[in-house]
């Protein structure tokens, strides 16, 4: 029969395992911009940089991306853009669309932007855990 004091190390271990990744995780500022002209994608920009100061907010949705042996977050995201886009969709995206019809000739210009936003990133050997902050 274990005493109450005897369970303390086990509880501490579990709590450490749960919260340690958040303590070790790095914070990155990520922004995205896609320009579509006449239904054809013409440019795409993904900016990734380490946060220069501590981000505030609570953790929300997380995704796991395969690192492929790399520790460069930009490469990791580009390698599996679709999964990262599912995380971006949970954050706020800005859409700006302009369309012009002159004498039955149509021109359209759409810009989809994710404003710079803070994410916590924990890169292990095989996986990178990216969590959005809200």
């Amino acid at each position: 029969m274990r005493s109450r004091d005897g369970d303390r190390p086990l509880t501490l271990t579990i709590l450490t395992l749960i919260f340690l990744p958040y303590l070790w995780a790095d914070e990155y500022i990520i922004s995205y911009r896609a320009v579509v002209r006449d239904a054809i994608m013409v440019s795409e920009t993904l900016n990734v940089s380490r946060a220069m100061q501590k981000c505030e907010g609570r953790h929300t949705t997380s995704i796991l991306l395969e690192t492929g042996g790399s520790d460069d977050l930009h490469q990791i995201i580009v390698h599996d853009h679709d999964t990262f886009f599912s995380l971006m969709q949970q954050t706020t995206l800005h859409i700006d669309h302009r369309e012009k019809n002159i004498d039955a000739t149509n021109q359209s210009h759409t810009i989809l932007t994710m404003p710079p936003q803070c994410f916590t990133v924990d890169i292990n050997q095989d996986l990178a855990k990216i969590t959005a902050l809200k």
């Binding site: 949970q90 954050t91 706020t92 995206l93 800005h94 859409i95 700006d96 669309h97 302009r98 369309e99 012009k100 019809n101 002159i102 004498d103 039955a104």
Partner: peptide
């Protein structure tokens, strides 16, 4: 004849 449309929004 010219028609211009503009959409501007934040979506989450």
């Amino acid at each position: 004849s010219m028609v211009r449309t503009h959409v501007d929004a934040m979506i989450r």
